[in-house]
Each structure stands twice: as structure tokens, then as C-alpha cells.
Design a protein around this nucleic acid. Structure first.
Lengths: 213, 213, 213, 213
DNA sequence: TATGAATGAGACTTCATTCAT
DNA sequence: TATGAATGAAGTCTCATTCAT
């Protein structure tokens, strides 16, 4: 199980009732994220979650309809965090492959600092399929727009729109499997992705997708 | 749930004791594959499996140590089937990208005819992680040898061994996500992968990995 | 569940504190009656009741000691309503069997216009046994007085007091079972009792209880 | 709660597996009857039932689909017992009111020796409505045949078939309410019905239903 | 080896009630 | 007096595993 320390802050400054409710909700969601990230969706019991959140089991049902409900909300919650992180750590004015590389590094960076995210994302296809599908829809949508701009800039040539969608799935897939293989050590702890892996990815991308001089 | 018909053949010809035991083992494994492929690992109960196999619940424990035991054996069993299928459907004498394309089509072909395999493979990372790792080890090993030969033939240039391993993960990843996205319809039923997706994959590969004139 | 519309009137004219409290009490009681009449005692949760009454859950406990408390008050509240209804719809100056028939029709009439009453009354023996016993005590008491007058008028002969009490139970029982069988359609909705049933009841009564020429 | 003594016989003679299973089923059903008869359907928990039966909670679900399932089977099980009891204790060759009286006494006799039956029957309308309806269907059917024969013998005159059905409901109702009122003392323990009550019932019946000289 | 009844831990969920605001 | 979040006991049900036959 995850740490048995409560997530409840020790020094809760005076809060209004509504604030406190919001806080409890956040607490439960964070606890759920931690538990799922550590033990997986299948072993994420309400009892573990509430214990970590420092509330009674019954309290859980004041905020979520069911166990499945909280599982469904996990990926949207973390996914938005991740996208925000990536957006905020992308340097302006990058174009072409350099932009792709920055994006990739930002993704791995988020993974490195949020060790629970990988499992939440990966297992979601099994345990929260709709959330997973929606997450993908958002990712693919954003990626399509980005690649569309690259096409307009003439950086990418020779792929029609449908082909580009397929390519996007390949790139997202590659990220995930690279993370699975290279971003964790023997003990399952996360770590940075080796440089040569990023280089291989970029080489493939530069040659295969971008039409560089 | 899967078909409620038993997998037990109605007219078993006279078998020796050992043969019968082997047959029961196979029966249970096939039943497990069917159940997992349909309902997923999480919902694959011993009771469903034995019912489909046409034996009593207790019999299960004469052949497997535990529920986890049978789950662990599933992917090796199906994985070998898949590799045999691919090997046997690969035309001789193909080289370069054409060989890759044949391999890809053989994989999708297997998926199309063995609808349970995708789920068994995909969920294995969660529910049978060691089997999943071993399956990958075998795949990657084989792929390394194949790409090694391509390097020797001069079809691939500019990637060192470590980089090639990363590329292999990208390719395996791409297969999996393409299957996830394109090889199933709205109802989760399998179907063939659209041609343009295969074309996009190959275009990326030809340009990005192979050094074609 | 019952209607989700609140029972709280939208335009409450200015009320004194005490009036408002009385109003809230009545509101909760009516809501409880509605919920019990629709869902039964067993499924009448505080949450349903307060929601229908348009007040917070906590408010409930300002007016009732416990869940059982409100259940106990339901039948007395509705029972008085029913008796008032019957009393007010009984023509003056009826005697003998005619008086009994009027009483019976008034009872069925109340049931028809107050569909929740049947369930509140019937299930009370299980869920509010003391209230049920008290309700019966009142009914029987009244009935005894009525039959006593009939005896004095010479309309009834050959039954001593103890026997008359037994007869009263038979008559109240008959009403209830007739309602159970004939006053509801397939869907559990209430409706009028068929005329021939009333005729059978009266025939039995005229011959069996009253000594008619 | 009911007695905490187990219903399991202390000296179980050697039984085949099937016999033992049958015995466990019977044990659970009897335990359920006892618990429901004592505490009512609403408070009949699986845990109480299995404890009384002397088996583990899980065992319950080898024999019943759900809690509701066992509740549904209770009345049919006891109802058949009761009908058998009545049939076997009815003297041959009785006709007319005497036959009715024997039937009534047999019913009260069963109640007296099976104290749990009353509650199982009465609460069934609320907690096992289909079983209750079916029980009534059977009772009414049987009663119709019996009264039909009385009509043919000329013992009953002036009631058509529809009216007789209504009368049957009145008689069944009367039994039930008489039992409710007279067959239990202050502490809820069963006892015999006072003679004068039976006399009142019979007087009403003789005059009201039967056409005696 | 085959059987299938028995086991019991543990999961999810409901809901009457309390209490600080 | 009104609020509604928090509580925790209790209930139903599932299922991997054991074991006597």
C-alpha cells in the first residue's frame, strides 16, 4: 500500500464550509491517485483511499457515486495536470523537430516528477475505458492541430490527414512504450529516460516525418 | 460471458490416463483464454473457467497452483501461437521494408482471426506483468536479430545497437496502438486495419529507418 | 420514488417563528406519508423525506426523535384524517345494514382518493406495531359503540359483547382484504371496488349479523 | 434474535454427499423460517440465518441466489406444510358448516404449533409479494372448489360465483385478523383462539352464508 | 484424479444519526 | 432553528481456495 501518512494538512487554516468540502474532495482524489498509482486500479479499495485521505469510509460517498466514479475521474484530473505541465514548460517559438523534442522531454519530465501518472494512464484502458478514450481524443486533437501547423509551415510533406492521424497514434504509442521500458528501474521506480533513446526517437522522426534538407 | 457451451469434445476417443490429463490441462487453458479474452483478466473467475471447460472447480487446482498461475501461463501459450502463425505466414526471401510490411500484416492477420489475443496481451502488463515482460523479451530479441540482418545487408544505416532497441520498442508500440485504434469497431469487435494506416506506418518506416535510394 | 417536487409552497406568506415551525413539521409529515405510501416503510429514508419536504437532513431531527418516531406518527395522522372523512361523509339518520353499507363505501371512497393510505395502514403492523394497535383500538372502540346502538335498536340479536368484538375484527379484516384484492389494478394503482363485491359483503352482513325480517 | 442453538442435529448419521446437501438446504430454510418468524423479514440477516443453521455465511450462497431468494421460498415452503397439515387433520365426510368449522380449527391448530408461520405469512405481502400472491391464489382456488361443492349440495344458496370469491376473501381475512387479535398473548406468544371467537365466526357463517333450515 | 460443498476474508455500499457552523 | 458534511456500524455478496468423499 501507499504511505500510511494522511494527506490531510496538519495546519488547516480556518475554512468556510464550502472550502472544506472542496478540500475534502481534493484530498480524496489525491489519495485515490496515490493508491491507484501504487497498487493499481484493481487493488484500489475505498478503505485504502479513505484511510490515506484521513476520512471515514462513508465520507467517500458524499463525494463520489461509487468506486468506479472516482476511478473515472482520476485520469481526467491527472491528464489536465499533465497537459498544463507540458504547455507551461514548452519554450515559445520552437518549430519543426525541435518542437517535437521539447514536447517529448516535457512528457518524460512530467512522468519523472509524477510517478503515479504512468500507471493511472496505462491501466485506464482496462479500468476506466471511457476516460481513457476521452484522454486520447484530447491528445490526438491537440496533436493534429500541432502537426497541421507544421504541414502549413512546409515542415511535413507527403502525408494526408488520415495518414497523419495514424502517425500520431504511433508517436503516442512510442512515448508510452519508451516510458514503460526506459523510465523505470528494476524496482519499478521512475527515472529519467536515457539520452540515446531520445536521440533514436528523434532520428526516426526527423527522417521519417519531417522533410529536412 | 463467453459461450456457455463446454469446450470438452463430446466423443473423446479412448485415451490413456496421461493423455486425458494433458487434455484436461489444455481444456482449462483454452477456457481461460476464452474467458480472459472476453471478460478480461479481472473478471476471469475460476468458476467461469471450469464451467466453460466442463470440469468441477476443484479439478482446476490439480492443474494450476492458483488463479494467478493460470493467468501467468496464458500469454506464453498464446504468444507462442502468434509467433508460430507469423513465422509460418512470412514469405521466404523478402528483405528490407517489404519484410517489415509482411510481418506487420501477419500480426494484424493473427489479431483478426484470434480476437481474444489482443486483450490477453494488452491487459497482461497489469495482471501478469512477468509474463508480459518475458513476452516482450522474446519479441524484442527476435526483432533485434531481424534488424541486425538488415543492418548487415546495408538496408539500415546510422543506428547503433542501443538505438535500434529503442526503435524496436517504438515499432511494437505502434503495432499495439494501431490495433487499439483501428482494429476494432464501435462494439469492440475486431476487424481488419485500414490500408491507409498500413501505408502511413510503412512510409514512416521506409524514410525513417531504412535508407532507401 | 415520489415526485421530486418539493412540497414547500413557493409563496409562503409571512409567518411567525412558531407558525413556520409548525409548517415545517407538517411538511415533513406529509412528505413522510408520501414517501411511505409510495415506497413503503422499509424504503422510506430520511434523505428521501427531507428532500421531498425541501429541508436539510439535519432539520429532520429538530422535529422528530428518530426515523422510527416519524413512522410511528404517520398512521395516527392519516388515521384521524380517514375517520374525519368517514364521519363527515356519513348521512345522518341511517340505521341498520344501510348504515354499515354507507360506512363501507365511505372507507373505500377514502382509499380511492388517498392512494397512499392503504400502504401506510397495511405495513404499519410490521413497521409501527404500536401505532397499528392503537389505530385498531380506536376503530374497534368506535365500532363497538355503533353496533351497541344497533343492538339497542333491536337490529342485531343473538350476539353477546365478546362475540361482537370478534365480528368487528372480521368486518375490519374483510374491508382490508377486499381493498387488497379489489381496490387495485395490475399496476398497483387504486380504483373503485366493484359493485358486486359490495353486494356480497352486504348480503353476508344482512343475513349473518342483522336479524332482518 | 431466535435461539442461538444450532439446528444442526448432533448425531448426523452417515449421509451421501447429495443427502448432505439436501440437508444443508433444509437447515438453511428452517433457520430462515425461524429467524423471520421471530424477527420479521426486515431484520432477517444472512448472518443470523447461517449462524442458526450452523454454516458459514458463504455457504448460504451455494443454496440461494440472494437474500430475497430465500425470503421468497419461505412462504411456499411453510404454506405447503400448512395445507398438508389441514388436509391431514380434516375428518372425512364432514359437510356444511361443520366442515368449515373443522377447517378453521385446523388452521388455528397449525398456527398454535407453528408460531413462526403467522409472521411469515403476514409480512409476506410486503417482503415477498409474489409469493404472497401465489399463496393466496392457491388458497382461493381450493376454497372455491370447496364452496362449489357446498353449492352443489344445496348448502349454500343465493351467491353467484363472483360473489363467492368475495366471500372467500372475507373468510380468509377473518381468519388472519382473528389470529392477529386472539391467537397471541401480550408477549407475542401464540396460544389457542378462545372458543367464543370461533362461535361468533361460525354463527356469522351459518346465518350469512349457509342456508340452514 | 475428480468432485463440489464449505469456508471466511474482504469488498462495496447505505443510511440513521451527530455536530460544528 | 437550519444546515449538510462526517461518521461508522452493519449488511449483502463474491470468490479463491480447501478438503473429505
Amino acid at each position: 500500500m501507499a504511505d500510511s501518512l494522511s494527506l490531510r494538512p496538519t495546519q488547516p487554516r480556518r475554512m468556510s464550509r464550502e472550502e472544506k468540502a472542496r478540500e475534502t474532495y481534493r484530498l480524496l482524489l489525491e489519495a485515490a491517485a496515490q493508491v491507484v498509482g501504487t497498487d493499481g486500479y484493481a487493488d484500489a479499495s475505498i478503505s485504502k483511499i479513505t484511510q490515506l485521505a484521513g476520512v471515514a469510509q462513508g465520507t467517500f460517498y458524499n463525494y463520489f457515486e461509487s468506486r468506479q466514479d472516482v476511478l473515472n475521474r482520476l485520469l481526467p484530473y491527472m491528464g489536465r495536470q499533465m497537459l498544463d505541465h507540458i504547455a507551461s514548460s514548452m519554450p515559445r517559438d520552437l518549430t519543426g523537430p525541435a518542437r517535437e523534442e521539447a514536447r517529448l522531454r516535457a512528457f518524460f519530465g512530467y512522468l519523472d516528477t509524477h510517478p503515479t501518472f504512468y500507471r493511472i494512464l496505462y491501466e485506464a484502458e482496462v479500468f476506466a475505458p471511457e476516460a481513457h478514450a476521452e484522454h486520447f481524443r484530447i491528445l490526438v486533437e491537440g496533436y493534429k492541430a500541432a502537426l497541421g501547423r507544421a504541414v502549413q509551415r512546409g515542415e511535413i510533406q507527403g502525408f494526408d490527414e488520415n495518414e497523419l492521424e495514424a502517425i500520431i497514434y504511433m508517436l503516442l504509442a512510442s512515448r508510452a512504450y519508451i516510458a514503460m521500458r526506459y523510465a523505470r528501474d528494476r524496482n519499478g521506480h521512475t527515472g529519467p529516460v536515457p539520452e540515446h533513446v531520445i536521440q533514436a526517437y528523434m532520428k526516426m522522426l526527423r527522417r521519417g516525418l519531417f522533410s529536412e534538407a
